[in-house]
Simulated assay, not measured.
Amino acid sequence: MNFRLQLFELEDQPWFPHIIRQGMLDFLRFMITKLNAYEAALPLLQELLERTQQRHVTDLCSGAGGGIGATQKQLSQRMGTTIGVTLSDLYPNIAAYEYLNRQSEGAIDFIPEPVDATAVPESITSVRTIFSSFHHFPPVVARAILQDAADKRAAIGIFEGAKKSWIELLLLWFAFPVAILVVTPFIRPFNLGRLFYTYIIPLIPLGIIWDGTVSLLRIYTPEQLQQLSKQVTATGYTWRVGRAGAGLGKNVIYLIGYPDPAAA
């Protein structure tokens, strides 16, 4: 797929029920973690941390924190020290963040107040990441996110866990409905509402299939990310885009940016 369609996702809509949105995001977090979908992003994240001499990441647009637990643990192992992660979102999923905080024994914390990725507070100076969320933003907003990072001399890593292919779309339509029904009882933290809206009134599965389809169509290709980065006004700031990983569920489209210390 070399095209992009700016369609709408249900979870983006203010009127969309929180319990359904949360159930969809919890499933996404579970699958990303089990598939270790962002393994290919680890060397890129390590590079950003080493270039900026930092040991902390602030994740923007965290949703339910999909895959961040495994990423934090593996990144810490690679670097031989504990890498801290702070989760944030314009609509924070507090229940999921508290669960990840407990599971990581405090290595993952969160900001309970809304954080706008286009205007990150000056007090946040760590490396920024966006996993599985950049496609939500139309080009004007996407550029604003990049411009904010460049203006504040913050390193940023944007990662989409997909190859953006027709095969992925077919798997979403025909394999995911079965996967949702099988794995839902094992998703934590446990939630009776998630079971009800999966097995009795299947709004969560329907929402996952719709939003998953739209997400694939909305993901920026590396070429489109390159064009976005060229529109950012920044001196002494480097952008790199590309694809990483191989195999089903292991592909990552990425954009990383970092300041040149000499240009500070």
Rank of each mutant, 00 (worst) to 15 (best):
S123W: 03
D89A: 14
N251M: 02
A96Y: 13
G236Y: 00
V232Q: 03
F30Q: 06
A41T: 08
D260H: 03
D211R: 12
P189M: 10
Q72E: 13
T129H: 07
M1T: 12
P185Q: 05
E47P: 03
Q72N: 10
I130Q: 12
I253K: 04
G236P: 01
P222C: 10
I68M: 12
A179W: 08
L35F: 12
A263D: 06
S229A: 15
A40S: 14
A96S: 15
G193V: 05
Q13N: 12
Q103E: 15
L170P: 00
G157Q: 05
V183Y: 11
R243M: 12
L195I: 14
S126V: 05
G84A: 08
V241M: 00
P112A: 15
L75E: 10
T58S: 13
A150H: 08
A175H: 13
N251H: 08
R128L: 15
A96L: 12
K230S: 00
R21V: 03
I158F: 05
P92V: 09
M24R: 05
A40W: 04
R128Y: 15
G236H: 00
D59R: 02
T238F: 10
V241T: 12
L100P: 13
D148K: 02
I180Y: 06
P261T: 02
S165D: 13
I187R: 02
I209H: 02
W239A: 01
P114R: 12
F176I: 14
A96G: 15
Y237E: 00
A64V: 08
A142V: 02
A263Q: 04
T184L: 10
Q22W: 10
R55L: 01
R153M: 01
A264N: 09
L206M: 11
R218D: 06
